[in-house]
Design a protein around this nucleic acid. Sequence first.
RNA 1: CGGGAUGUAGUGUAACGGUAACACGCACGAUUCGGGUUCGUGAGACUCCGGGUUCAAAUCCCGGCAUCCCGACCA
Length: 409
Amino acid sequence: MKFSQLFSKTLREAPSDETAINAQFLIRGGFISKVMAGVYEYMPLGLRVLNKVNNIIREELNKVGGQELFMSVMQNKETWSATGRWDSAKEVMYQFKDAASKEYGLGFTHEEPLTATAKHFISSYKDLPKAVYQIQTKFRNEPRAKSGLLRGREFLMKDLYSFHADQGDLDQYYEKVAEAYDNIFSRAGVKAIRTFASGGLFSKYSDEFQVVADIGEDIIYVNEQENKAVNKEVYNDEVLTDLGWDKNSLTEKKSVEVGNIFKLGTKFSEPLGLTFMDSSGNNKPVIMASYGIGPGRLMGTVVEVSHDSKGIIWPESIAPFKVHLVSLDKNKEADEVYTQLQSKGIEVLYDDRDDKAPGEKFADADLIGCPIRIVVSKKSLEEGSVEIKKRSETQAGLHKIDNFLSALN
RNA sequence: CGGGAUGUAGUGUAACGGUAACACGCACGAUUCGGGUUCGUGAGACUCCGGGUUCAAAUCCCGGCAUCCCGACCA
């Protein structure tokens, strides 16, 4: 991609109404654009990052047998009335009437519709277990959208649901997904701590995946050594005793919840009538669990925990491009380096602009935050070299132009 | 939904109650070329919306709306 062709432009200053670091850098870098409170558009640069996050999620979930599907955002009232949530969720769910006064809602989660759909396909113990997921836009009427991508009213969510014949099978699969989550978050470049938490209206307890960051809304008590934590909402002597954790090993931290997993049991299968016949001919409700990750929130969280005063420092796994190539002094060699990188399948953003001063190009490279910066200039060419610098480091090094590729890893 | 703050050009800011200015960005022309180079010319604003006070409102008052922050909420 040539910088001169990019749809977006960088901004020298962040809009004054954005105070969250993730929003400031992502807007300044041209990754996202704000539409209204809690609603952002992803520009080409931002979509590249988001898609990489999504693909990491897909790879890890596919490994544990998840099958991707795509449900509807439009929801009918009847399905949601079966569990009573049409009324109880009125505050969060956008609900409206069409011209004929028929009522609809926009999905803010998908337990009900998926359970209803599963009835078409699950009827025997031979059909179990199953796990399906989607990555889709969710709508929630948040009373207070805030912190850039961290809490929105329209946002992307990966929601996985699993169906089981018995609790033991669910418990086993639940742990497999928890491992997949660990992989997803570490591949995306954040340290997410599995946190014992409240299950809200879903279940008594749940497991959350929390990234320590000051902008977070949650308060957790972390055991750094053992990489585990408990959420303040269930932090009491009884729970600590049950867990067998020592109060003195825990430190209070603020954190962002990037994922959560719930054991739903038969909370949805019973009211919606999702049952299966076991091997002895008895009809039983299917046992379910649900598992969420907010890819956009995760992207914002990465920015929160990985930046410096000049801009974002993307982990290579989700960086918009691996290499940010900067050409100075109007040389031909940079074009050749660009072609060479592309032919090797290395993703590169090429700052080919010839009307910008070096300082501005460096500032943009730091802001956008690709892991590797390559500069081709008169200075480097005098040495027959290109300059290579990692975004995360301050030291740059010269590498001969005929074999600079070997220095990229 | 309670409390607080703020709404002026694409972005950041200015303007005693006297008819909107500056910087960045943008266009054109020079200049320069390793950390946002310098100079010139130019385009770009119903000052969030609606009322009111006044000879006169970006500015004061009332009512909306929007955005951010704190809290409540967070499936």
